[in-house]
């Protein structure tokens, strides 16, 4: 049933997929971190013309499946004249989808910085930008790191969805190998093992992060 020779034979092709999976996760994470922060700040805006549209967009994205969003980005946007490569569509899809979740983490982290810190910053005459960069964000981020990391691990495990829009990530490579050889056990087991090998240490690392940063909230 289990063929070690076949395993060795398909490793190079799966390795190509691993590279794409990691690239998609890293790029998606970067987008989710930056766009999530922007979204959190936009949703705190005093201007309702900023606050409401971003709020609506965030709820819309969170309330619909990532797979549907990927289809929109890759198959429907070209009808509107916007043509994205599979990888670009996939990374944008992952990043923006998870930005709506990271925005909530940022929002909670920002809300946890006491009102007194905002007032002290005002009392020493810092500008709004200086207050954010020097006082609020440096205090808000450390306690959020475990929650953010949790979402990035989830994102990593959702990268196989990119196969649906022809990104040659690990799952797609494994499926292609399996279909070609009509042998599914080894490639699918290897895909599962890879995700497990990355996820389990990540979760252990996450627990350490929680211990390291969570007490700072108190």
């Amino acid at each position: 049933m289990w063929d070690w020779n076949f395993v060795w034979q398909i490793i190079p092709q799966l390795a190509d997929g691993v590279v794409i999976t990691i690239q998609a996760t890293v790029l998606g994470t970067i987008i989710a971190m930056i766009a999530g922060l922007g979204l959190a700040i936009a949703r705190r805006s005093r201007n309702k013309f900023i606050r409401y549209p971003f709020g609506f967009a965030a709820e819309f994205i969170r309330g619909t499946p990532l797979l549907v969003q990927l289809y929109f980005l890759f198959y429907i946007l070209p009808d509107l004249g916007i043509l994205l490569s599979p990888m670009v569509a996939g990374v944008i899809g992952l990043g923006v989808h998870y930005a709506t979740y990271t925005a909530e983490v940022y929002r909670t982290g920002i809300d946890n910085v006491s009102k007194g810190q905002w007032e002290a910053a005002k009392a020493i005459n810092l500008s709004t930008r200086q207050t954010w960069t020097q006082i609020i964000i440096p205090q808000a981020i450390p306690p959020m790191i475990p929650a953010l990391a949790n979402y990035f691990i989830s994102m990593f495990k959702e990268t196989p969805l990119l196969a649906a829009i022809t990104v040659l990530e690990l799952m797609n490579q494994a499926r292609s190998v399996a279909n070609y050889h009509y042998k599914y056990v080894e490639p699918m087991t290897m895909v599962g093992a890879f995700f497990l090998l990355v996820s389990v240490p990540s979760v252990i690392f996450l627990r350490r992060l929680e211990k390291r940063f969570a007490p700072k909230l108190r």
């Binding site: 002290a120 009392a123 020493i124 020097q134």
Partner: peptide, 27 residues
């Protein structure tokens, strides 16, 4: 105008020195 608060409101992520130097340097 300067103000001192009942609950201090020092910036916990900065040292004592940085708490005091922050405003002159930035503003």
């Amino acid at each position: 105008i300067g103000m001192v608060f009942q609950l201090f409101n020092l910036f916990p992520h900065k040292t004592v020195l940085e708490n005091v130097t922050l405003a002159p340097m930035l503003t």
